[in-house]
Amino acid sequence: MRLFRDEEHVRNAYPVPGALFAPAQLWQLAKRWYGDRLEPDWVPHTRERNQADLEAAGLTGPFFQLP
């Protein structure tokens, strides 16, 4: 889960496939996934909640299917 200058730099570093997307999508995911982490009544999110957070950020398909 790393930040790269651009797609060419990803291909240079990783000849194997993975998922490539915009930081704006990751920010949407980060807000949903971690936005409550410091709240006094925080509890771990369920798998269903996590999957919904991924989908809400546009991260869908088999690659983003949680176990």
């Binding site: 993975g18 998922a19 490539l20």
Partner: peptide
């Protein structure tokens, strides 16, 4: 808000293997 950027994010490992 995230300030617009030209950088890209890469996930190498599928979600099924994250843990």
């Amino acid at each position: 808000e995230l300030v617009p950027t030209d950088t890209v994010v890469h996930f190498l490992v599928p979600a099924g293997q994250w843990y």
